[in-house]
Nucleic acid binder design. Structure first.
Lengths: 212, 212, 212, 212
DNA sequence: GATGAATGAGGGTTCATTCAT
DNA sequence: TATGAATGAACCCTCATTCAT
């Protein structure tokens, strides 16, 4: 027998609120990633989210807070995404998977990547808490790679720089999307598999491993 | 004792004008690359150039024009810098020299690189005339690389993507300078030679050539 | 054991309503007296009254009306408080009691006093109906004092100004509470009796009467 | 022989600037004293000073700064005005002069007084540096009065409270100007001499001295 | 040429109030 | 009645640009 009590009033409107908050988030990502923090206007964000400017302020605390929240989300997301499981003992497999994931992320979330790039270009004023996390996460990977080198599974190389170069090549497809498209003379979908293959081969061979 | 040479009054201020224009240029590069187009204020540019705001406007047509002129200069400069002389028939030597030059450029002119990156992130509204030039310049290099592949001097690979990946890795040291410094835990000079060597080895090996 | 008295449903909420209205009144007094009309926000009033903003607007007609009602209440209250009973024929006793009452009122209801002071500073836009009442009430006192003077019970003086000066000194303890506390270097309770005694002696002697 | 060099360009426009700054000051005093800090709008200040809003911001740093500067001026002015020269050994003469000066100041600068009163009502958020100065200045006067009492020149009384009561009565003519005018049924000039005389007599007699 | 001043547009934010549920 | 949301006006401030001297 079901209780006749109606849905709790407290949560009745939540779906609406959640939808609006999501719309704001999406709009903000687009505007911030396209125009930067200063260049983006709350006007444009509100409009894109289908709200008026004062309405927007009903949902957010301010432009700063909105931006910082977004950035935190991006960074938190990143920390979770690119993990090299320590148990892996096959450099080749690990690298293949890592590159694939990074390219996928760049191509699927180019705006988030650009948000971060802009923050870096601005001097990273909101990145204070990010560095320790990023450093720790990177160190894990460096340790793994250096173990591989020590075990003779990889040619001697600078693990830190290797990671950075992989990062650079994959991130490039988000930040430089425009140039990539022009240079590759592509108008719709990028040839994702080709991109992944070329980066992967370059890295595998560059590390002294067998290519794909 | 005064020099008896009487400078022609008409041209007397020309050096002054040129010096001022150069100061404006330098100031604008710094401000635009640091804060972006919207984020940079004519106030700050004027101040950095040692001028007042109206003075600045006496020398420039407007913020837009100043920025566009700057960008044109950067791009024109670029076109001249990275030339692979067609006579070269030694892929290894060409790549070694090319990477060296690109890294040097990134480390020596990070602000110019960032200016361009910001323009790309903005969607490249002022890049209309750049693409044809860039495409042509790239095509020359692609032709060369593909000839090398056809001649068996290089393993089969996508020349366009290879160029892009080299670009990505080298440009990274300008755009991501902040992250690079944090990750490498470097506070003053980057270990330029190590960087060049690692990228070069990665690319040479990745192309099926002998490392350094 | 439950009371069998079934409250009429129609009037069940009346006490609630009255309690809410009282809460609003109290909250409004605090906020208005602390921040002034413009400085006070309905938000803060609502919150202090334990209501949401729309709830508040359900009970009041508007910020203006709430304020005006409040002011009317204060003024009406005032008219009732400081009465010099005409039958009194002993100036000394009357003055002693009057000063005591005024000081007590200022110290016990500083916020009401400040509300009025702010209204005066604002130019008294809502004081239209107050003046006649106040004037009449004052006139009674003036008549009494002038009678005393005529009867030789008081030295010749300007009754109107005397009343005003008493008002000034007593009101001071409400409006200038902050300065008073700093100057007297008092942090909790003011030495009420001392204050009353000093004012009283000053006035009594100043009127040619015997001090306390 | 006089130098033919024209007036220094740096100071040529200063009179204009000074006049504008004075206009802003005057306008700000009126608006702030009439409507309080929150209630006053830069719009109204600018308009009253004959400027547009952005023009106003060319001359001032912000609403806060303008207000604080004003307040500082008022307080600094105060510190200089009401001095009881320590050499004075005649309580009667000192009190007569002091009261006269205070009444004059209140009647001549009512808006400055109101500015301060409003600041007090607001809780004195910008009064931090004022209190020490005020306390010191007051202490000097207290010492003097207490010396008089010790020398038998004044009846025993609380010097601190006496000063406060004089302050209260005189300040009253600024803060409560509206009520004063209504109560005294005066429309233009207050009977300044009468006011001074009544306060003075009240105080002199109240202190055990001979009246005027 | 250079300077103080002016201008108009827009940006972020707050707030009293009302609407729909 | 009570709640989340909406609205429109206003407010403070900044900025690129231009004018008058």
């Amino acid at each position: 027998m079901q209780s006749p009590v109606a849905v709790a009033p407290r949560t009745r409107n939540r779906p609406g609120r959640a939808r609006i908050l999501a719309a704001i988030r999406d709009a903000a990502i687009i505007e911030f990633s396209q125009h930067g923090f200063k260049g983006a206007s709350t006007q444009a964000i509100a409009q894109r989210a289908g709200l008026t400017k004062p309405q927007l302020h009903y949902y957010i605390a301010g432009k700063d807070e909105l931006y910082q929240q977004l950035l935190r989300d991006v960074l938190a997301g990143w920390s979770n995404v690119f993990v090299i499981e320590g148990k892996e003992d096959d450099p080749r497999a690990v690298l293949i998977r890592y590159i694939r994931e990074k390219v996928d992320y760049s191509l699927d979330n180019p705006m988030l990547s650009r948000l971060f790039t802009r923050e870096l270009l601005d001097g990273g004023p909101n990145l204070g808490t990010y560095w320790p996390v990023a450093l720790a996460s990177t160190q894990t990977k460096i340790d793994l790679i250096e173990r591989w080198v020590a075990e003779g599974k990889l040619r001697p190389l600078d693990a830190r720089l290797l990671l950075m170069h992989i990062w650079a090549m994959t991130q490039h497809y988000a930040d430089y999307a425009l140039q990539v498209r022009v240079m590759l003379q592509v108008t719709d979908e990028l040839p994702r598999d080709t991109v992944v293959r070329e980066i992967t081969d370059l890295v595998l061979l560059g590390c002294g491993l067998a290519p794909l």
